[in-house]
Lab assay of single mutants.
Amino acid sequence: TTVKVNGTKYKFDTPEEAQKFAKKAADKYNLKVVVDGDDLRVE
């Protein structure tokens, strides 16, 4: 599972880890998590 934040992709072994990271990033930058198929985007 990958998470894309500000054009940078981060790869995670499990969707749970990816979800946690995406949520933290979204909170930090005051953005929202967008599900894109198997991957997540923070925008």
Rank of each mutant, 00 (worst) to 15 (best):
K23P: 01
V5N: 01
Q19M: 15
V35W: 13
D13E: 11
K20E: 15
R41S: 12
K20W: 10
D27S: 10
T8W: 12
K23I: 09
E43Y: 09
V35R: 10
A26H: 02
G7I: 02
T2I: 12
D39T: 14
N6D: 07
G37A: 05
D36R: 04
K23G: 06
T8S: 08
K11P: 03
V5F: 15
T2A: 06
T2C: 13
T2L: 07
K24D: 15
E17R: 04
A18L: 01
K24H: 13
F21V: 02
D39S: 12
L31I: 08
K32I: 14
D38E: 12
Y10G: 00
N6L: 15
L31E: 05
K4A: 10
L40K: 02
K4Q: 13
G37W: 04
F21M: 02
D27A: 13
G7Y: 04
D13G: 10
K24V: 11
V3M: 00
D13W: 05
P15F: 14
K9W: 14
F12K: 01
E43M: 09
V34P: 01
D27M: 11
V42A: 04
Y10Q: 01
F12T: 00
E16R: 06
D13L: 08
K4V: 15
V42G: 02
L40D: 03
K24I: 13
E43R: 04
D13R: 12
D13I: 06
Y29D: 06
A18C: 01
N6S: 05
D38I: 08
L40Q: 02
V33A: 02
F12H: 00
T1E: 02
K9V: 15
K28V: 08
K23F: 10
N6C: 15
V35Q: 11
K32H: 12
F21E: 03
F12M: 01
K32S: 13
K20N: 12
A26G: 05
A26E: 05
V33S: 01
V42N: 02
T1G: 04
V34Y: 13
K11T: 14
V42F: 06
N30A: 08
D39Q: 10
T2K: 03
R41C: 10
K11L: 12
R41W: 09
T14G: 03
D36Y: 07
P15G: 04
K23Q: 14
D36C: 12
Y10F: 11
G37T: 05
N30H: 11
V34R: 07
Y10K: 01
K4F: 15
L40E: 02
L31H: 07
Y10I: 06
D27P: 02
R41P: 03
V35Y: 13
V5P: 00
D13N: 12
E43Q: 09
V5G: 01
P15K: 11
A22Q: 00
E43L: 07
E17L: 08
E17C: 08
T14M: 03
K9Q: 12
Y10W: 07
K20D: 14
Y10S: 01
F12R: 00
N6M: 14
K4D: 12
D27C: 10
V34G: 04
G7T: 04
L31K: 07
V33M: 05
K20S: 13
T2N: 06
V33D: 02
D36Q: 06
V34E: 08
A18H: 00
V42I: 10
D39W: 09
F21A: 04
Y29E: 06
K23L: 10
G37N: 06
E43A: 08
A22N: 00
K20Y: 11
Q19V: 13
V42Y: 04
V5I: 14
A26Q: 04
D38C: 09
V33T: 02
K11F: 14
P15D: 04
V34Q: 08
K24W: 15
K4M: 15
F12P: 00
T2G: 03
R41H: 08
L40W: 08
A25I: 15
A22M: 02
T8N: 11
K32C: 11
G7S: 05
V3F: 00
Y29P: 05
V5A: 04
V42M: 06
Y29W: 11
D36V: 10
K11A: 09
T1M: 09
E43H: 06
A22E: 02
K23R: 10
T8E: 09
R41I: 15
K20A: 14
K24S: 13
N6Y: 11
P15I: 10
V33C: 08
V35D: 06
K28N: 07
V35K: 10
E16Q: 10
D13Y: 06
T2M: 08
N30I: 04
T14Y: 03
A18T: 01
K28G: 07
F21L: 02
Q19D: 07
T1P: 05
T1R: 08
N6G: 12
A22C: 04
Y10E: 02
Q19L: 15
V35C: 07
D38K: 10
D13Q: 11
G37Q: 05
A25D: 03
V5L: 13
Y10V: 04
V34S: 08
T8V: 15
K20V: 12
Y29V: 04
V33R: 00
Y29K: 05
A22W: 02
Y10T: 02
K23V: 08
F21N: 01
A18M: 01
K4R: 13
V35M: 11
K28M: 13
R41F: 09
K11V: 14
K32M: 12
D36P: 01
T2F: 11
V5C: 02
N30K: 09
K23N: 10
V33L: 06
E43C: 11
K9A: 14
T8P: 00
D27T: 09
D13P: 10
K4L: 15
K28A: 11
N6P: 01
A18Q: 01
N6W: 13
T8I: 15
V33P: 02
E17T: 04
V34N: 05
A25Q: 14
V42T: 04
A26C: 08
D27Y: 09
A26Y: 02
P15T: 09
T1A: 06
E16F: 08
L40Y: 09
T14I: 04
L40A: 03
F12W: 01
T8Q: 13
V5W: 14
K11E: 12
V33Y: 04
